[in-house]
Amino acid sequence: MFQALGTHGPELSPTMGLVLDVLLLGAAFWLLAGPNRRSVHDVVLMAALVVSVSLIRVVMQPLPNIQPVTVACLLVGAQLGARRGAAFAVMVTMLSNFFMGDGWWTLFQAGGWAMIAVLGSRLSLVVDGAYNATRTCFASLGSAFIFGLVVSFSILDGTFGAIDFLFYLANGLPFDMLHALGNLTFAVWFGAWFSSILNEQASLESIERAVVDRHGIDA
């Protein structure tokens, strides 16, 4: 938490930092790239989401471990699918960390939120366009601890023993609980609204169905 816990693993050289950024950005583009062309609406919506959620994260930085990005990742994953959810997570992490501080930990934060976006896509938070508030609440609580665990791996640099790591994790529990509480608040207040915004965009599934149907007619 302090001194030692305030650090996030090894320091990166400028070159390594650049390589890391290129890798993350490449991963985001790869995740977004697909067989179907995105409409301008899709691109603008994704860009607006990334910018606004990043901005909210930066603005809420003074509040300890209140992370609006977590619930956003869950819902983007649930509504737009795992790939776009993960891409969203990576881009939000990169953009917000540009203001809040970039480093080795960015990789783990991006990974943690991408994992939560994937979980969001698998947990049936939105079924047939219907938002499941109860599931989202539970998922938002659990995702705080998953994110905390993934990000904590950034401290491992070869000098940290297993016991030390467990103590490190245990030390962070109060902050993980606060993260969970923050997630729950975001989910109950803004979950349904945020989900409805995303719902206005055609889901991947419907796009794929439309493509298949068109090919069927052509045949």
């Binding site: 509040l63 300890p64 606060l178 509480l181 109950v188």
Partner: peptide, 28 residues
């Protein structure tokens, strides 16, 4: 009700987190 309660609990959490974290770390 859950909406309002969540805000209440979050505010309480933010108010006590410093002391809780310090006490917890000392215990650990």
């Amino acid at each position: 009700m859950l909406k309002f309660l969540s805000v209440y609990m979050l505010l309480i959490g933010l108010l006590v987190i410093d002391q809780v974290a310090i006490q917890w770390s000392q215990t650990i």
